[in-house]
Structures are given as structure tokens and as C-alpha cells.
Design a protein around this nucleic acid. Sequence first.
DNA 1: GCCGTTTTCGGCCCGACTGTTTTCAGTCG
Length: 596
Amino acid sequence: MTNNEIAKIFNETADILEIKGENIFRVRAYRNAARVIDNLIEKLSDIVAQNPDELNSIKSIGKALHDKIIEFCQTGKIKEFDNLKNSLPSGLLDMLKIQSFGPKRVRLVYEKLGIDNVDKLEKAASEGKIRVLPGMGEKSELKILKSIRDFRTLQTDRKSWAEAEQILNDYLNYLKKIDGIDKIQPAGSFRRCRETVGDLDILITCSGDTEKIISHFAEYPEVLEILAQGETKSSVVLKDKIQVDLRVVKPESFGAAMQYFTGSKEHNVALRSHAKEKNMKLSEYGVFQKDKSIAGENEENVYNSLGFDWIPPEIRENRGEIAMAKNHSLPKLITLENIKGDLHCHSTHSDGSATIPEMAAAAKRLGYEYLAITDHSKSLTVAHGLDERRLLEEITEIDVFREQNPDFFVFKGIEVDILADGSLDLDDEILSKLNFPIAAIHSRFGMGSAEMTERIVRAIKNPFIRCVAHPTGRLIGERVPYEIDIAKIIAAAKENNVALEINASPHRLDMNENFTFQAREAGVPICINTDSHSPDGFLAMRYGINVARRAWCTTENIVNAWSLEKLKSWLKLPREKTEVKEKQENMEEQIQEELF
DNA sequence: GCCGTTTTCGGCCCGACTGTTTTCAGTCG
Ligand SMILES: Nc1nc2c(ncn2[C@H]2C[C@H](O)[C@@H](COP(=O)(O)OP(=O)(O)OP(=O)(O)O)O2)c(=O)[nH]1
Ligand SMILES: [Mg+2]
Ligand SMILES: [Mg+2]
Ligand SMILES: [Zn+2]
């Protein structure tokens, strides 16, 4: 039983209670708890089994939900939830997904007309049977029919941040063509750099006529449908099947509007509550103290006027950042400019398209000081993985390169395959001749969690491995992460002083933000690597930076933000080993000598 | 249902758009 199962139950409970007309704050409590549980990395079932008291320290979980979690972990179900679910037709929950059709209307048509699924609602609306209900009319029926068509044709997954960026930039370029715009900025989950975005949110400031700007927004040729169009905001759906929300405010409200429109919603609610406690009011128009505006134009001033440091958008998730902003203890988040090298890339020796000198030159152009060449190992035949002989050739080539390029350091690496039993594709003798071997799984993804975890932990314990690449193996939209015990992987990495990778390739982003958050909290060193197979691949670094920032990482946490000197001394640290300790001791002298 | 250096009870963010209404409820951001 996973956390996500419990979160889903709480979300569904909230939906059912809301349809039943329950107190909205009780409904919200379920949704808050669901969200907190979804963000939790430790498994609730483990907590319940090992240390149930720990449940009490989880925010938004009180006595009632605490008991429900225990019940679910012990019996596999929650009686009250089952009863609730049986008390309503399940089709009502589908109806909630229809735009502009919420819990009140679901209840209305169910009670008055016996409508309990989307098909029946569509039929009733097309037969003019909805207009007789209080608050409903002819236009409502048309809107329902349109929304149901959208529900059937436009339902899509959230888009990746990288894909959304393309769509956004095209739209921004179009919008900028009109006169009268003061500032134009992306907001919402895109500005917070979430891995995926549900829609795009754009803020515009203008001192004059907002109507012209909003019409221009709605007349974009890529617009499929206009959902709403008023004097300060509009929403459209694009042919790409993504919604775009526009908000327009006066320049003096730019900062407050950015704060509002960037969110997250939970962050906003918490921040506004703090304002209220101080007898102030925060809205998208500004910070107000007895109806007088005391901040608004500048976002930093908005935070400062409420007694908080400015908070980077990436961490505005109400995960404790507001308290830290109050006592000036926010982390100084890693930036792209802090990155000094890339510790996972490929050359023509395996499946890369560029030579080692070409890759190094590209890294140098980015201002990097070092690079690790980590080609594939022999068992990955499709990628022309290196056997011992070819790896020795590569090592020799790097030696020559080093002599010719004293101002740039190339680490001798390998992305060695972790075989099914956790042993490595190359033996220790050849690994000892390298200075940045990383390990990764490229085969047998289907094994169970316990076995897979043991497999990776065994690789971590190898004394020559410095990093585990793409630790969960997911390919976004293609392959789900393999089952592993994340807590155990983190503990092993910490104990053995092995780094875990944020693979920055937009198809991977692995570790993801929650895994990274937990790894950072445990003090595990983290690499942000692009896994480049060509010089252009290095440009993906910024996607990995997004993940790291959202996980609260600073330069201290990120191995490839360290200076070459610091990185080298970290690599020389003695490592506690169990399985292979004796072997390591024998080879210790050799390692120290040959490391660089 | 959760939560507490002003509280263990009484709050819980604030505002825009739509369609219906004659002053506002519902939905959404
Ligand atoms: N104060 C307040 N702000 C909200 C509320 N709902 C949304 N917002 C703000 C914060 C959001 O980040 C922003 C944009 O709303 P969205 O629904 O697009 O959410 P967001 O972009 O965060 O996530 P998404 O990826 O689109 O699902 O509007 C709310 O109920 N109250
Ligand atoms: Mg959004
Ligand atoms: Mg939005
Ligand atoms: Zn690779």
C-alpha cells in the first residue's frame, strides 16, 4: 500500500463530502492531508509499522486522519470511506471534472433530476431539461454541452516543463507585438519550475486600456476555445490542448500580482493568513494596512512588508519556506552559474556523437572547469559499451588530452552497468584506474523492490563507485520508475559517501524533486549531470537545476558546483566499506597514487 | 478536520467571471 493510494482516498473523500454539502473546511482538511502525504517520501506503511508516533509530527494530519491511516495500513481499507463511496453513484465524481460544473451543481442535478453520470447530464442538457433548475438557464445548458465535449476530447496529462516552455515562448512573442504592454511575465507552476505544468499562467501589466490586450490574447491563432474573457483576466485553450490563463493588472500591482499568480495556492493561502494575523491584507493588488497600500509594485517589497525575506519561486510550496523566510534562514539555492562541470557524458568511444576533445571544448565554452567522460560498459552492446581493452585505450587518450590541456580537467570515468545480481560489468582492477566511475542500471528493470534495492546498494558499496546515475530509471511518459526502497538507497549512499545523480535530461529528471529533497536532507552528495551524448546535450543542465532548486539544494549539496580542488579532495576521502573493505585496504595505496 | 508566544474553540485567503438573479451563488484562479 503506497502513500499515493492513501492520498487518493483522502482526495476522493473530499470530493464526496463536498458533493454532500459538508463543511468546506473539513473538505479542505482532507485535501491538505492528501497533498502532504503525496509529498512525503517516507512510506506511511513503514512509519505505521516501525514508529507510529512519528505520524503525529506530520503537518495536517490530526487525530482523525491519523486513525484512518493506521486503519488503512493494518486492514487495507478505511470503513468510513467505503461507506461514503457506497452512498453515492461513482459517476458523480466524473461529473466534477467538467469545467464550470462543481459540487453544488452535481448535487442539484442528482437530487432534482436523478442525473448520476456524464452521459445522462449531456442528454438532459440537450433536451432542455436543465434550464428548469434554480440558477440555471439556456446558456448554462449550452455551456454544459460545450464543457462535456471538451471533457471528452481535451483531457490530457500535465505537460512537461520543457514542452510548455516552447508553447509559452511562442505565445509571449505573439503577445509582445501589441502596444501598451508594460511588463509581461510567466507565472504559476511554470515560474516555480515544476516538473510538469497543468496550464500556462501569464501576467501582463499595463497602465492604459486592458481590453485591447485581452482581445489580442484571445485572438491568438493557436487558440482553440475561449473559456472566459473579462476586464482583468482571460482563459483560453490552445490547439496543443493546454489551457492558458492571462491576468492583467496596473504597473503599481506588478509585484503583488506576480506573488499571487506564481503561487502555489497553498503558499498563497498561508502567506495571506500571516498577513491577516498582522492586521494586514494581501491580494494580487498589493499589501494593505487599513485600506492603505504599503507594497505592490515590487515583489520583494511585498514579502518584506509582511516581515518575510523574498522567497524563490521554486520553493513556494508551503513546505516550511515561510517560517524560514521569517527568521532569515532560507537556503541560498544553487544556480546554473554555480555549476563548474558535468560528471556524466558520453563520447564516440561508446554511443556519443562527439570526441573527447569536442566534448571538453563544449564544456569549456560553458565556463566549466572539469568534465567526467563516462562511456558505457561492455554489457550494453547496443551502446557499444567498452570492455577492459577499449577502456584502457580511452584512459590513454585522456592522459594525452590532459597533457595538452592543463587548464581543463577531464576525469576518467565510466558508466558501468549494474548487473542483475548487483555486481558490476567491469572488475575492480580496471575501475581502480579511473577517478570517476558511476554506476547505472540499464537492464532487468522488472525485479521486485527488495531485490532491486539490494542490487543498487551492492553497487553503492563497491569502493570505486562515486555516483549512481538515474537512480530510478524512469523515462518520462515511457517507463515508470523501477520499484526501489528510496530510504534504503539514501542511507547506503550516505554511509558510503557515494553521490546520487539528478539526471538533467528532460526525458529523465531522475532523481525527481522529492527523492532529491530527501537525499539532501540526509546529507547525501548530489550530482546534477546531463548524460550528454553530444555537445548540445550540456544545455540540459538547467532542467536539472530546476529539480535541485525545488529540492532546496545549495552549492554545498551539489558535487559539481564544487571547485576542482574540493571535488578532488572529496574523492580522496576514505570510505567505510563492509563487503569489500579488506580488498580496498589492499588496494588503498594504489588508489591514492593513481586517482588523478 | 486541523490548529494554537494573544486561542483547546472558533476561526480557516481573497478576488474575477459567468449567468442568473434584482442582489448573488457557483466556480475558478
Ligand atoms: N490566493 C489564491 N491563489 C490561487 C488560488 N488558486 C490559484 N491561485 C494562484 C496560485 C497559482 O499558482 C496561480 C495559478 O493557478 P493554477 O491553477 O494555474 O495553478 P499552478 O500554476 O500553481 O499549477 P498547475 O500546474 O497549473 O496545476 O494562481 C486560490 O485559491 N487562492
Ligand atoms: Mg498554472
Ligand atoms: Mg492557471
Ligand atoms: Zn549515460
